Amino acid sequence: MVHVSVISTGGTIACTRDADGGLTPTLSAAELVERAGLHGVTARDITALDSSAMTFADIDAVVTAVHEELEDHSGVVVTHGTDSLVDTAFALDLFFEDPVVVTGAMRPADHEEPDGFENLRTAVRSLRSRTHVVFCGEVLPARGLIKGHTEALNPFVSTGDVPENPVHLPPVSLAGMNVPIITCYPGAPASILDGCEDADGLVVEGLGAGNVSAEVGEALAELSMPIVLTTSVPFGKVNFSYGGPGGGNTLGKHGVIPSGWLRAGQARIALAAALRAGVDPAEIIGA
């Protein structure tokens, strides 16, 4: 039995520059494994995307592939673009307690000093229980992770002292779930919520420790769907403290759920997975 499988989804780690200088994923999983100098490792391609294009259906495909590969392997490494890497990694951490690592690169494969191949080698060496992210020699828990820099070789940072996932779910399909993210700015009108009436659930990226404008707060109180309120602030926990129509304390009394340590992308994954699994989203978001 071969012990490690590498699954490729595209991203910068697999990118080379085209004639116009644009980066596009061109390397296969097998080519990544070969260039990283890895032996005794299997390779599997799922898709070849810039991760800003990853849909719930694409995440489902990754989850399915990881499940299949774990039947014959002791661990799986997923290579992924950095734009939405933390969302996919969080989904994998919700669904698996097996050794799964997610990694990628900030420099393309044809860069004079590519970082992806070393990241991949480190990821294979650092397989352990629970999903985590490996970048630039660091091993980072998936939960509560954000991309905090557009250029740094390790762009990922935790929002704080984040506990492990309080709940693990059996894999559920996320495809077809309609969970938009709405960003609220100071004084935002209720019209920013237009078009969300038929959503399965809603994630609102608010301000501070979990607050929105008075008009948006009043509108949220009238919606019957599950709502998670997060923040645009990079670090710290979302706690509902403030009163007034847009304050988190008021919204919590109307059933709005604070996102805790999760930011918008991971809160969206948590809400969609909870609704599809039929569990309380607050149980997945945790303390």
Rank of each mutant, 00 (worst) to 15 (best):
V33W: 00
V33I: 04
A36S: 15
L38C: 01
G40W: 02
V41K: 00
A43W: 02
A43H: 02
R44Y: 09
I46H: 11
T47D: 13
T47S: 14
A48N: 12
D50L: 13
A53N: 13
M54P: 01
M54D: 06
T55F: 00
F56R: 08
A61N: 14
V62E: 00
V62Q: 02
V63D: 00
T64G: 05
A65K: 07
V66R: 01
H67A: 15
E68G: 08
E69F: 02
E71K: 15
E71R: 15
D72A: 15
H73E: 08
H73R: 15
H73M: 10
V78H: 02
H80P: 03
G81R: 14
T82I: 10
T82R: 11
V86C: 10
D87L: 09
A89M: 05
F90G: 13
L92E: 01
D93P: 09
L94N: 03
F95C: 09
F95S: 07
F96M: 08
D98M: 04
D98H: 09
V100I: 04
V101T: 05
V102M: 05
V102F: 00
V102Y: 01
G104M: 12
M106G: 09
R107C: 07
H111I: 09
H111W: 08
H111L: 09
E112L: 15
E113L: 11
P114C: 11
D115T: 14
